[in-house]
């Protein structure tokens, strides 16, 4: 079972839901796919061990063989190669690693080298039996999706995998949620929360993934989100109240199920609802 925790708007509580759900269930995998700002382990404090680098290829040009024909720059859709009158310049950070340049080069002057754009770490907690995989995109690197894709290769389908997705609706979100059995959309009951929830719903609908909504900070704003969910027949899986104690626990990095055990059973109940929805195919 693969469950993604996503949201259009940032800061609505994705990590809170992902971490507390993992702790409440136990015997689960947690994958932090918000590789631009991975935060799950701030709340778990696991000892992390590096597993691997995320490598992406980029062209290296042999000046002795290059005849400056410019075909490499012509095929490159990412502006990663500039053919100048007397040399060819490569901008590795713009390169997507498609290999087009080395295919078109008539002089065999282009070879591919690899560079790291991020890494994957793993941590394990034996008392909860939680396995955490965290991806981190290196500072100043633009492309998050390759890190997310490589991170997801660690999913073990014999257990529950909980995916903490990045915010938004762009490609890193698709890379995070595309192959999930279910998507939990976390929002807050404000106009910003509603506006971005509607965008996130469009994403999961287009991908055909069953989904439900968690309303965090319930009580702060208005009932726009609830009315929207009611009108669209979207299940509201859980409401987490706006509670200063929860906010302070969050600020310190303490998952609130640890201090408020009654929430453990609420998260387990939510998981049962999700399983029911996935097995019945309702909610797509």
């Amino acid at each position: 079972m693969r469950i993604a925790i996503a949201s259009g708007k940032g800061g609505t509580g994705k990590t809170t839901v992902a971490v507390n759900l993992a702790l409440a269930l136990g015997s689960a995998q947690l994958l932090d796919c918000d590789v631009e700002e991975p935060n799950c382990n701030l709340f778990l404090g696991f000892g992390l061990e590096k597993q691997e680098d995320v490598l992406i290829s980029f062209p290296e040009i042999d000046k002795d063989k290059c005849t400056l024909c410019g075909r490499c720059a012509d095929i490159c859709q990412f502006n990663a190669i500039a053919a100048l009158p007397k040399s060819v310049m490569v901008f590795p950070k713009l390169c997507h690693g498609c290999g087009g340049c080395s295919l078109v080069c008539p002089d065999g002057a282009i070879s591919e080298a690899a560079r790291s754009i991020g890494m994957i770490e793993r941590g394990i907690d034996e008392s909860f039996n939680i396995e955490l995989f965290q991806g981190t995109l290196d500072i100043s690197e633009p492309m998050a999706s390759p890190v997310i894709r490589q991170l997801q290769e660690h999913i073990d389908d014999s257990t529950v995998a909980i995916i903490d997705s990045p915010p938004g609706t762009a490609c890193p979100v698709i890379a995070s949620v595309a192959e999930m059995d279910y998507c939990v959309l976390v929002t807050e009951p404000t106009p910003f929360g509603l506006n971005d929830l509607v965008l996130a719903v469009a994403v999961v609908k287009q991908l055909g993934i069953p989904f439900g909504v968690v309303i965090n900070r319930h009580g702060v704003g208005d009932d726009g989100v609830e009315q929207y969910c009611q009108n669209e027949a979207i299940p509201v899986l859980m409401k987490i109240p706006f509670d200063r104690d929860i906010a302070v626990l969050y600020s310190k990095g303490t998952p609130f199920v640890k201090q408020m055990p009654e929430w453990g059973s609420k998260f387990r109940e939510m998981y049962r609802d999700i399983c029911e929805c996935v097995s019945s195919g309702v909610g797509v």
């Binding site: 940032g10 800061g11 918000d34 631009e36 700002e37 995109l137 500072i139 100043s140 690197e141 633009p142 492309m143 998050a144 990045p166 915010p167 938004g168 762009a170 890193p172």
Partner: peptide
């Protein structure tokens, strides 16, 4: 600006 550190932030 957007959240994060990736392409749209840069």
């Amino acid at each position: 600006g957007p959240p994060g550190t990736g392409c749209s932030v840069i």
